[in-house]
Simulated scan of single mutants.
Amino acid sequence: MKKTSGFSPEQQLTSLDARLLLSLQRLSDMLKAMQWEQARMLGITPLQLQILLFTGHHTVEVNKVAYIATELQLSRPTVSDAAAALVSKGFLRMEEDMRDRRSYSFLLTDTGRDVLTQAEQYIAELDTILQKRPLQEKSSLYQSVYTIIAGLYDKDKGGMQRMCYSCAHYEGNKKRQHYCRLFKKKLLSAELQIDCIDHSSLSGPARVISSSDNKGSL
């Protein structure tokens, strides 16, 4: 008997899982197309757009090639070349790490901040749609998406997820009981963080991001 596929219209008629899988794939494709179009309008590549978005909202401590490469699950040379192109365009500047002269961080220039504002606009339509949805519906959707991301995450395959489930401060059953030891409070499932400013890896503490911390360095 031929195995059915989640991409099969016949299976989608009867399987909610198949429809969900296709829906997530379609949403991913649409967001990617929107990102590509926004990058084209700005005269940069989609990867350069991603690097601008990351460096514009994270601190000098993590705005380094190695960390960004891990974040985007790309090789260091690929990220280095893309970031160097942004420097040559005048959108980023390089700042030497005074503690390690072999290391440097990328920071936005004034022109880069203007471009960042435009770069963020590719999700404006999606943001408008979400704002119009009921709070309970958004909470349920977020919990479902969060669970899917947590289920797919594999630290051995690379990537970076600053989410509660991978944080040393998290305590709970990863179902309905959640507690943050850092803030000493219970968390609702809809309050679980996916890019926490106080995330601490299970192998050791490391406060990694804060947009307010970054302002003084730009």
Results as ranks from 00 to 15, higher is better:
residue 124 A to H: 13
residue 83 A to T: 01
residue 126 L to M: 09
residue 49 L to S: 01
residue 216 G to I: 01
residue 92 L to K: 05
residue 7 F to G: 11
residue 73 Q to F: 00
residue 143 Q to W: 01
residue 29 D to S: 14
residue 60 V to R: 00
residue 63 N to G: 07
residue 198 D to S: 10
residue 108 L to S: 04
residue 130 L to Q: 03
residue 161 Q to C: 12
residue 142 Y to S: 07
residue 105 S to G: 00
residue 200 S to P: 04
residue 130 L to G: 00
residue 26 R to F: 13
residue 16 L to S: 08
residue 135 L to V: 06
residue 149 I to V: 13
residue 103 S to I: 12
residue 57 H to A: 05
residue 206 A to N: 08
residue 186 K to T: 12
residue 200 S to G: 14
residue 211 S to Q: 13
residue 15 S to V: 04
residue 41 M to H: 06
residue 39 A to N: 01
residue 187 L to D: 04
residue 42 L to A: 01
residue 20 L to Q: 10
residue 3 K to C: 05
residue 206 A to D: 07
residue 194 I to V: 11
residue 118 Q to S: 10
residue 132 K to V: 03
residue 56 G to Q: 03
residue 108 L to G: 00
residue 36 W to G: 13
residue 50 Q to E: 14
residue 44 I to A: 07
residue 114 D to G: 02
residue 101 R to L: 11
residue 4 T to A: 13
residue 94 M to Y: 08
residue 20 L to W: 08
residue 156 D to W: 04
residue 102 R to F: 06
residue 30 M to W: 03
residue 65 V to F: 05
residue 92 L to Y: 11
residue 71 E to R: 15
residue 132 K to A: 15
residue 126 L to I: 12
residue 77 P to I: 08
residue 1 M to N: 06
residue 110 D to F: 02
residue 88 S to E: 15
residue 78 T to S: 11
residue 21 L to I: 04
residue 42 L to I: 00
residue 2 K to P: 15
residue 112 G to F: 13
residue 10 E to R: 06
residue 132 K to W: 06
residue 6 G to M: 11
